[in-house]
Design a protein around this nucleic acid. Structure first.
Length: 507
RNA sequence: GCGGGUGUAGCUCAGUGGUAGAGCAUCAGCUUCCCAAGCUGAGGGCCGUGGGUUCGAUCCCCAUCACCCGCUCCA
């Protein structure tokens, strides 16, 4: 409910989370055991919303892909690859090497260091200063003087912080930015990939990973798709599915969770056309998010700075994000989708690691090359959150105090059928309409309680239309349509209700 | 991972060292021709979890888990 006084975006977010639980959109995973940090379950309405978003994406990509620059629809096919693949996949992709660094924290300064980048000067005292490995000897001597320690470097042994002898005596180590010993924590492995073991026994030989992105499943199947379908470059392969990342800090409701769902499309094209296609997809994707109800005011298009680019995008045109102004990021924005130029990094890597040819033979030009990739990668889970945040509308003039302003195409329930009273004459007509509509739309039939409560309930879950059966319905087969946003009513014939909804679903 | 805060019915919260309350919601019945209305009634919590102190703890202490805020991190 709306609060008095200063109503901050944090309050708004809390209200949204409360509504999500109260009405069955999102629950904490394993709630009865106290939950599990970074994991969430979708409830009855949440799964409908998520499926709607998922299906709209699939339709926009695979079923009715956009018209390309040549006036014809572009070519995109879908796949659904395994979550667990041969672990070499992740060595090739750069995920195994790239994110398993031991880190230490300084309790004093709260700074965090790569443990393998720190050098410790050990001697027979109990004060061992640590330095960044690339610090000049003259700077080391200066600091030793400041710390009141022996400045003769020959009196010290140099050890990496990760060596067992050093780790066993961390209380003697003086962190790089402090002047007393014992402020560094034990190194921690920050491997963002979940691992598991394939087969009954658990050991290093059968270690495998849960995919941290769906993209690699697409690259692994590049040849399969080229060989089994008639696609020709440029074309795309789309996939929707779960991905897993051991985020250091899952935060902000379902925005950063450890298990989440991605909608990724890898667009294979010639290197010289990469720029054109990146711009093309950027436009297309921004337009799509708007078409499902996100307002331009809450969307921002932002190119990545060079220092935040992923390893695969460093050489190319970079990445541009489509960002949404979530209540918890306001006035800033949070990433919804990134359109990256992955160059030929992935195919080249897999060719190197697998020994399989991953290049493409153009059948017309009879020319062999490794395609470049433009990747529009969207978060389905984040998309759901953006839709909910966008829809959440405070309106103190109505009984519910709030309603969810979903576009009809994403609303979990498209309509509710409400007999005005529970009397014998109204209920059968309502049931008849309900049985007819549910063949085509997810709809609710709600008979109990007074009409106001039922309207309020539908407002809160974002049902765009309520069809009410009253005494006039008995006489002339018309029903009232009550619009969620305006609360205005009009009468239409029962036979026209399906047409009415069908028309409203259009975007 | 660090620091601060929070954790009592579905929700929002109150409360006391002696085994817990309100409003709203939910459900049932009656009523009602249109916006959580009215009347009557019902269900629902052993106070996040596990220890400890105590004759006895929801309220005291410790640990743990989760969430929120800040920092850090973020393929």
């Amino acid at each position: 409910m709306p609060k008095k006084g200063a109503f901050t975006s944090m309050d708004r977010m809390k209200d949204i989370v409360a509504l999500c639980k109260r009405r069955g959109f999102v629950f904490a995973a394993s709630d009865i055991y106290g939950g599990l940090n970074g994991f969430w379950d979708f409830g009855p309405l949440g799964v409908e919303l998520k499926n709607n978003l998922r299906d709209l994406w699939w339709k926009a990509m695979v079923i009715t892909p956009p018209i390309g620059p040549d006036g014809n629809p572009v070519e995109i096919v879908g796949i659904d690859s395994a979550i667990i693949q041969n672990p070499k996949t992740w060595e090739a992709s750069g995920h195994v090497g790239g994110f398993s660094d031991p880190m230490v924290d300084c309790r004093e300064t709260k700074k965090r260091y790569r443990a393998d980048h720190l050098v410790v000067l050990k001697n027979d005292t109990d004060k061992w200063p640590a330095f960044f490995e690339d610090v000049e000897d003259t700077d080391i001597e200066k600091r030793l003087k400041k710390l009141g320690l022996a400045q003769d470097l020959t009196g010290y042994e140099r050890h990496n912080l990760t060596e067992p002898d050093i780790l066993a005596a961390l209380d003697k180590v003086i962190g790089p930015d402090v002047d007393k010993a014992g402020t560094l924590t034990e190194p921690q492995q920050f491997n963002l990939m979940f691992h598991t073991f394939v087969g009954a026994t658990a050991n290093e030989d059968n270690k495998a990973y849960l995919r941290p992105e769906t993209a690699q499943g697409i690259f692994l199947n590049f040849k399969n798709v080229v060989d089994s379908t008639r696609v020709r470059v440029p074309f795309g392969i789309a996939q929707i599915g779960k991905a897993f990342r051991n985020e250091v800090t899952p935060r902000n409701f379902i925005f950063r969770s450890r298990e989440f769902e991605q909608m990724e499309m890898e667009w294979f094209c010639r290197a010289e056309e990469a720029k054109m296609w990146q711009e093309f997809w950027f436009e297309e994707r921004a337009h799509w998010w708007k078409s499902i109800g996100l307002s331009s005011a809450n969307l921002q298009m932002r190119p990545h700075e060079s220092d935040e680019l992923a390893h695969y995008a460093k050489e190319g045109l970079g990445t541009s994000d489509i960002e949404y102004k979530f209540p918890f990021t306001d006035p800033d924005f949070g990433e919804l989708e990134g359109i990256a130029h992955r160059c030929d990094f992935d195919l080249t890597q897999h060719q190197k690691f697998s020994g399989q040819k991953m290049d493409y033979l153009d059948p017309v030009a009879q020319e062999r090359f490794t395609p470049h990739v433009i990747e529009p990668a969207a978060g389905l889970t984040r998309g759901v959150l953006a839709l909910i945040c966008e829809a959440y509308t405070v309106d103190e003039s109505r009984p519910s105090g709030v309603y969810l302003n979903f576009h009809p195409s994403v609303a979990p329930k498209k309509a509710a059928i409400l007999p005005l009273t529970a009397k014998e004459e109204h209920v059968p007509l309502a049931q008849k309409l309900y049985l007819e509509l549910r063949e085509e739309f997810p709809v609710d039939l709600d008979i109990k309680q007074n009409i106001g409560k039922r309207y309020a309930r539908q407002d809160e879950i974002g049902t765009p239309y309520c069809f009410t059966i009253d005494n006039d319905t008995i006489a002339d087969q018309t029903v009232t349509v009550r619009d969620r946003n305006t609360m205005a009513q009009e009468r239409i014939h029962m036979d026209k209700v399906a047409d009415y909804l069908r028309e409203k679903m259009k975007r």
